[in-house]
Simulated assay, not measured.
Amino acid sequence: MVHLSSPSALRPFLKWAGGKRQLIPELLKYVPEFGGQYYEPFIGGGALLLTLQPERATISDRNAELINCYQVVKDAVEDLIQTLQQHRNEAAYFYEVRSWDRHSDFATKTAVQRAARVIFLNKTCYNGLFRVNSKGQFNAPFGRYKNPTIANETVLRKVSAYLNQANVTIRQADFATTMAAAGRGDFVYFDPPYDPVSTTASFTGYYRNGFDRTEQQRLKAVVDELTQCGCQVLLSNAYTDFIQDLYRDYRCVRVSANRAINSNATKRGKVDEILVMNY
């Protein structure tokens, strides 16, 4: 049984577009007590997982590099830290490491090397944004930070300890595939790529293949199925007319969240989001 008097929250080891660290106080108001398994099929930075620290969890994402990071943090955190300590906050070096996924020998890199690359780029790129182009190649520019913490040993070790002490399954999978195993008494948190708030505001560049409104509708059908089988579901999304209409039969709450990741500085700050619940 998960109660909301969880141990002190762990910090995410990655800054992720749409990450929920700023929204955690609001989310916790609506997280139910549950006796089953916790599921988070769009894991991202994992802020809610690391706050709740459930004893049984399944986390997943379609992003292979992201899932590899979690697996390496769980299985080889000391090797990861050692490798991260070898990376340098220099522009030429940054672009050299960024270019790895443009070469055929990228497939020969070890899991630890790939995970360290993602964390290094995340800590040193502009605005800490995991962003890829249409070919799935990392394309955020160098951030020019004076002294970023590339290897946060304390955070990495604490997250690794949780992933090992709890029963946490880590999968690279589509959300529908992950949710096929969920049942009565389980709790699911969906934090998909958000519906764009305007025709020009697309926040899905970090997510290869995009997540359009057809995908949003497919996700809603999974929410319906989970509701019928007795799962408790909480979902975050942008407060748009499309999402409000899509989930009109569910309990919906409007909340404000701080958004730090946007290429346009004037668009950072408070934005409206929607929380959808089936309980």
Rank of each mutant, 00 (worst) to 15 (best):
N127I: 06
D191P: 06
E40Q: 11
V112F: 05
K267P: 08
G44A: 08
G44M: 02
S6V: 11
K135R: 15
S160R: 01
R268F: 06
Q165R: 13
N133I: 05
K109M: 09
A260E: 11
G19K: 02
A47E: 02
R251A: 14
A107Y: 01
K15P: 11
P7M: 09
L48Y: 03
V97S: 03
Q217Y: 07
Y194F: 13
F175I: 03
L234N: 00
L10Q: 13
Y95G: 02
E90N: 08
L275F: 15
A151G: 03
E153W: 03
F190C: 14
N147C: 02
Q37L: 13
Y70Q: 01
Y247M: 08
I81H: 00
I43S: 07
R157G: 04
A238C: 02
K220Q: 15
L80R: 00
S134Y: 13
S6F: 15
I170L: 06
T177I: 10
D249S: 15
S60W: 07
I150K: 02
A161D: 15
V155H: 00
V233E: 06
I261C: 11
G185C: 10
N262R: 07
N68D: 09
R102H: 14
A116C: 01
R144P: 01
F190R: 02
I261A: 15
D245N: 13
T154Q: 04
V72H: 00
I24P: 09
E96P: 01
N122H: 07
